[in-house]
Simulated assay, not measured.
Amino acid sequence: MIRASTSDRPDGVPDSARFATGLRHARQAEEAGSTTSARQTVGDALALWRGSALQDAVRYPFAVAEARRLDGLRHQAEELRAHLLLADGEPEAAAIAVEALVEAAPLREASWAILMRALYASGRAAEALRQYECFRIALAEDLGVDSGPGLRELHLAILRHDADALCLPRTRAVPSAAPDVDTDGRGGLLVAHALLHELQVKPPLIRPWTGPRVDRTIPDLEVHRTP
């Protein structure tokens, strides 16, 4: 667990504060271009976690909101680690790391963006397109919304094999080609038909929602209502 208590810390700094500080430093290192330092720092921050947040204080009402905040920061830290793996030319490891994140928060577009980029960089462009299509359909059917412009642009970049837009390391091998689809906007992107074989072989990461249709959004989900 990550603790709010300082009883086992000689410097009096709780694990929750250490974690938040570590994440901030990792982001600063990544922005400065030091992926090695960023990976080490975010790894050390995540190592502070043992199970749920503030498990030693769950009996107190104030801990509920704080635990939710820390869980959100933990997800961001995991996303950063996956992003750094991809930036360091390890797309397969990045894809594995982020798959668990989209399972845990299936409506968080930031995680899906990393997954799509990692799959493409791993030579699995068709799977990246398939996962986007499953995510788009789930949003439309369950919430009546569309994916944000950033994810739509990423989808188009994969279709066009636009490495610059995908921001991928140039030292890696060029991925296998995506299936031929219409990208001029006149005939629509019928990705599902092009990916029929994969859809029969491997189930999508996102699963149909079977619970009540209430409050499925998260604060940073950027969505747009469909007509």
Rank of each mutant, 00 (worst) to 15 (best):
V201Q: 10
A138F: 02
D142R: 12
G188A: 02
E79V: 02
A110N: 08
A113K: 12
L23F: 10
S37P: 01
A93I: 01
I2W: 00
L221I: 10
A93C: 01
R213E: 07
L156D: 05
A87R: 15
V98E: 02
L70R: 05
L143A: 13
T41V: 11
P106W: 04
R59P: 04
D220L: 07
R124F: 11
A113S: 15
A105V: 13
C167E: 15
T171Q: 02
Q28R: 10
G211K: 12
H197S: 06
A65H: 09
G72A: 03
A53F: 08
A53M: 04
G72S: 07
A45D: 00
P91S: 00
D182F: 12
A53E: 04
R81V: 07
S34D: 15
P106H: 00
S34K: 13
A95L: 01
D180R: 13
R213A: 12
R69Y: 09
V174L: 14
D220K: 03
A163T: 12
D184I: 06
A138S: 06
H224S: 13
T226N: 07
S52Q: 09
P203K: 07
Q76L: 06
L129G: 00
P169W: 08
P219W: 13
H25I: 11
E78N: 02
R136H: 04
A126R: 10
P175S: 04
I2Q: 08
G144H: 13
L190R: 15
L156N: 03
E198V: 06
A157L: 01
P169N: 04
L196Y: 11
A100E: 15
D11K: 12
I137A: 05
